[in-house]
């Protein structure tokens, strides 16, 4: 394998990995805050992709400019999901853990059906935009622009998340994460923090989905694969850790690219999942987890 091919492989792994990392960051944020795994996380990604596609088709606005719109939209979706379902699931008397798992599973199935009903099963893709189908070549290495832009935007989103963590709200988030009972005594409205946490988690997926729609086919079941990788990323990086999600996301992107190159593209996920199991055996709490 030539040097250019190796660089190409690592580059494409890195760019995909940054998307994985941002999707996982949203999941990790919600989990860290309230111990709830959102099994409908992939469906939030799917919603973000559809929103981007239809906004682009309806208005003709450059998809890159739609990113903040989709992020705000998903922020709202996340808050609504918290208020209508999750807040109730947190309040049940019996089988709380099981209710949380199956309520988000039910939501995932429902949203898939709703997308099928509303948009049909067709694969949608953004055909023409500023970046679509363009590449930059340098010394035999091809850099597809939509993926490159997605990588940059994902990094910016991570920077934004880290900045938010330093604000008053971010400190309230952290405090709620540390001790849900104590923050109530300090006059922090826990329910509001949880709702905003869901909003922020969903908005992260919103950004990832908006960028992903630029180079990936959108369909009702597009979320499933990304969700699986997100769970693995979060478990690998350690639940609740932002830095862990970023590093684990990139690691997973690279493992996937290398497996696809060395073995068979259809086995790329097996490589990712295998690495996860290996880490699990050695370090059950993940790379950066504080169990």
């Amino acid at each position: 394998m030539s040097l250019a091919a190796v660089v190409q492989m690592l580059l494409s792994g890195l760019l995909m990995g940054l998307i994985y990392a941002l999707v996982a960051a949203g999941l990790s944020l919600i989990f860290g805050l309230m111990d709830v795994v959102n099994f409908a996380h992939g469906e939030l990604l799917m919603l973000a992709m559809y929103a981007t596609f239809f906004l682009w088709r309806g208005t003709g606005i450059e998809p890159l400019l739609l990113v903040p719109v989709v992020a705000i939209l998903l922020f709202g979706v996340g808050m609504v999901i918290y208020r209508t379902l999750i807040a109730r699931a947190l309040g049940v008397r019996a089988n709380r853990g099981m209710v949380q798992i199956f309520i988000t599973f039910g939501l995932a199935i429902f949203l898939q059906g709703a997308a099928q009903f509303a948009f049909g099963g067709d694969f949608r893709s953004i055909g023409h935009s500023l970046l679509a189908n363009r590449t930059v070549a340098f010394a035999g290495v091809y850099l597809p622009l939509p993926q490159a832009a997605a990588g940059v935007v994902c990094l910016l989103a991570f920077a934004a998340l880290l900045l938010i963590a330093r604000t008053e709200f971010g400190r309230a988030l952290e405090a709620t994460r540390e001790d849900r009972e104590a923050v109530a005594l300090l006059g922090i409205d826990r329910d509001r923090i949880f709702a905003l946490g869901w909003g922020l988690g969903a908005a992260s997926v919103g950004v990832a989905g908006a960028m992903l729609a630029g180079f990936y086919y959108t369909s009702p079941d597009v979320g499933a694969n990304f969700a699986l990788i997100a769970y693995v990323t979060v478990a690998l990086g350690g639940f609740g850790s932002l830095a862990g999600a970023l590093l684990a996301g990139v690691l997973i992107g690279e493992v996937e690219a290398v497996t696809a190159q060395l073995f068979d593209p259809s086995l790329k996920q097996v490589g990712v999942l295998g690495v996860y199991l290996l880490v699990l055996l050695v370090r059950p709490r993940g790379l950066f987890g504080t169990l």
């Binding site: 379902l85 109730r88 699931a89 049940v92 008397r93 019996a94 089988n95 709380r96 099981m98 209710v99 199956f102 309520i103 599973f105 039910g106 939501l107 995932a108 199935i109 429902f110 949203l111 898939q112 059906g113 709703a114 997308a115 099928q116 009903f117 509303a118 049909g120 099963g121 009702p220």
Partner: peptide, 21 residues
């Protein structure tokens, strides 16, 4: 392939989980 069956199925799961945990 209308997806109504999935909406029903998912809706039922959510309903029972919340109403009869």
């Amino acid at each position: 392939g209308h997806g109504v069956d999935l909406m029903l199925y998912g809706g039922l799961i959510m309903l029972v989980a919340l109403w009869r945990p």
